[in-house]
């Protein structure tokens, strides 16, 4: 019986103090909306950053004097490293063909070239988790010691960019989420605290009539959950409207918006996030009820 009555009580209070509650709901909605909005670029950068390791490869140039057997030996000793995902052999002829096709419009460069100046090479793809600046440097130092390898090439700049992008995004995202959650919890806290103080007399009467702590607290928790949940739902509606307008309407005019990904499933959890933050705020506001 307690829960339905508590529910009725909290609904009465919610609508009885509609303005303060509406204000809190709007504040929370705005907060969650801003978090969600700034999450879109973070999310997109993250999607890109996740794909980058697949694009990363190292080129190992081989000594010209190696025969097939020697090359196989080099490949085998490279494969012994657990960082290696796959190795592709590129003969000097293939390399030249590739180069020619890339420079299709400038074939004059190759005129008068009777001998292929390119060495044989190996293209190494590393495992996803091995693509970070330190691991790659260690690996290349190790690889350089293998007989028959003359030179190792990889995009160091590219590599550290991926890495710092990833770390930076994570840190920035975490800090941002912590600050915003704290803000939202504070809004719920203040709302419930205000509701609580406005009802001080009533709560005192409840206590004198024999109400338990749970009986007194439950309506406030429901109110916190309701305020947080409404704020979350409102921000969800807001973010949908916003992304509809920006990414579908404006995409015709500004093509870059077409490729923007929206983490829809993540946003669907906004009401739930709101509820949790609301309850947290209420719990902190009520603290330890004393008799």
């Amino acid at each position: 019986m307690t829960v339905p009555y508590s529910l009725r009580l909290s609904l009465q209070r919610l609508f009885g103090e509609i303005w303060i509650n509406l204000l809190s709901i709007l504040t929370i909605a705005a907060g969650l909306f801003i978090v969600s909005l700034s999450f879109i670029p973070v999310y997109n950068l993250d999607v890109v950053a996740k794909k980058l390791p697949d694009k990363f490869s190292m080129i190992v140039y081989l000594d010209n004097s190696l025969n097939r057997n020697d090359i196989n030996q080099v490949v085998n000793s490279l494969k012994k490293n657990k960082e290696v995902n796959s190795i592709r052999y590129i003969s000097k002829d293939e390399a030249l063909k590739e180069l020619k096709s890339t420079l299709r419009d400038s074939t004059f460069i190759f005129e008068g070239l009777d001998e292929n100046p390119l060495p044989d090479s190996l293209e190494i793809k590393l495992r996803r988790d091995a693509v970070d600046p330190n691991a790659v440097r260690e690996f290349s130092e190790k690889a350089a010691r293998i007989d028959g390898i003359t030179e190792i090439n990889y995009g160091e700049k590219f590599l550290s960019t991926i890495y710092y992008l990833k770390v930076g995004l994570q840190t920035l995202g975490t800090i941002f989420i912590i600050i915003m959650s704290a803000g939202i919890i504070f809004v719920c806290y203040s709302t419930v605290k205000i509701l609580f103080y406005r009802r001080k007399e009533e709560i005192e009467t409840f206590k004198l009539l024999g109400a338990s702590k749970g009986f007194i607290r439950t309506p406030f928790l429901i109110e916190g959950a309701f305020i947080g949940g409404s704020g979350g739902t409102l921000s969800l509606i807001g973010i949908y409207l916003f992304s509809y307008i920006v990414f579908f309407r404006l995409a015709d005019k500004v093509p870059i918006f077409k490729s923007v990904a929206i983490p829809e499933n993540l946003f669907l959890s906004l009401p739930l996030v709101g509820i949790l933050l609301g309850i947290t705020g209420a719990v902190i506001a009520l603290g330890r009820l004393k008799y």
């Binding site: 206590k207 009539l209 109400a211």
Partner: peptide, 19 residues
């Protein structure tokens, strides 16, 4: 503290200030 409500549930009170 948690038993205070239990005690009060045995008591009916006519408050001077009504409440």
């Amino acid at each position: 503290e948690s038993s205070i409500p239990l005690l009060r549930r045995n008591v009916g009170i006519v408050f001077q200030d009504f409440r």
